[in-house]
């Protein structure tokens, strides 16, 4: 039971982080390697504001800061670096390569800033106007922050899936992912939608950053890197661009990790995400729910 609670909480965090990454990867062809540092820097901004305001920010404000900073950074990265790269690249392959390099380069900047600011020490939201407390729940323990994570995870997960499935802009965004030329011929403004998608992705990264910082107690400048790797495995597992796949992948990985910790020596945990990555790439390269490369003929 306790394992289940922990796995679901972890899965929610993975999901919030990976969904945004999957969204822009699947639709805008942006495999954003700066996603992890956006996640980290959003949490850091909350930390910074906490310090400036004498630890008086409530949890909701911290989460809001995370969302706003994450969305802003993501949009800026897109507008100033990633989109010009996409526009200038000769073909799809070189675009993908340059996006990757651009993302890695971008990722370094916030990491360096935080390393300098914190002297590479961990940072955390000092218990200010909220306390982490835990309650008995069906014979196990669940904390207030875990409950927040569950609620946010379920709401946002559903919202994003519905958005992409049902709404006009969601449909339009998906069409960009499949065939951007056809999309533009349908009158779809990829620039605006791209910005919207990047904002959603960044906002979710920022939100998970703030939530994680509260839940895990602290983050470091490098915290985003570990998560990035896991999100990568999750997205490959679920299928690039498939939101449902990403959700399944997130909970699958969280569940596998939790089970592994409970039953074996914990040193195998990271090997799992790597192992999954290889396995999926070998056996089912398009992921659990990913489409075959249909794309253009």
């Amino acid at each position: 039971m306790q394992e289940l609670i922990n796995a679901v909480s972890l899965g929610c965090i993975y999901m919030l982080f990976a969904m945004g990454m999957s969204l822009v990867w699947g639709t805008l062809d942006v495999l954003n390697f700066a996603h992890g540092s956006i996640f980290m820097f959003s949490a850091f901004s909350g930390f910074y504001l906490m310090q400036e305001t004498g630890n008086s920010l409530p949890l909701a404000a911290l989460l809001l800061v995370g969302v706003v900073v994450g969305a802003l950074m993501s949009v800026l990265a897109y507008q100033l670096v990633l989109r010009p790269i996409l526009r200038r690249a000769k073909d799809k392959d070189s675009a993908e390569r340059q996006i990757l390099i651009g993302g890695i380069g971008l990722a370094g900047i916030p990491v360096a800033i935080v390393q300098i600011q914190t002297l590479s020490n961990p940072f955390s939201f000092r218990a200010g106007s909220f306390e982490v407390a835990s309650y008995d729940f069906l014979g196990a323990r669940i904390s207030n922050i875990q409950i927040v994570i569950w609620v946010v995870g379920v709401l946002l997960g559903t919202a994003v899936v519905l958005w992409l499935r049902r709404s006009r802009s969601g449909l339009a965004l998906r069409s960009i992912g499949v065939d951007s030329e056809v999309a533009s011929l349908m009158g779809i403004d990829q620039g605006r939608l791209g910005v919207a998608a990047m904002a959603v992705a960044g906002g979710m990264a920022g939100l998970s950053g703030a939530l994680l910082c509260v839940s895990f107690g602290a983050l470091t400048a490098e915290s985003g890197d570990v998560l990035l790797l896991k999100a990568f495995a999750i997205i490959i597992l679920g299928g690039v661009g498939s939101m449902l796949g990403t959700i399944i992948g997130a909970f699958f990985l969280a569940g596998a990790e939790t089970l592994l910790i409970a039953n074996t020596s914990g040193t195998w945990v990271d090997a799992v995400s790597f192992g999954l990555l290889f396995l999926v790439l070998l056996v089912r390269p398009q992921g659990i729910l990913g489409r075959q490369e249909v794309r253009r003929t």
Partner: peptide, 24 residues
């Protein structure tokens, strides 16, 4: 287009809806 370029993830109706959404 010369080759069929429908969006494989979407149904026929959704594909057509996409065209109806040009925002005019």
């Amino acid at each position: 287009f010369q080759t069929v370029r429908l969006l494989g993830d979407l149904t026929v109706e959704q594909n057509i809806l996409l065209g109806a959404d040009v925002g005019r």
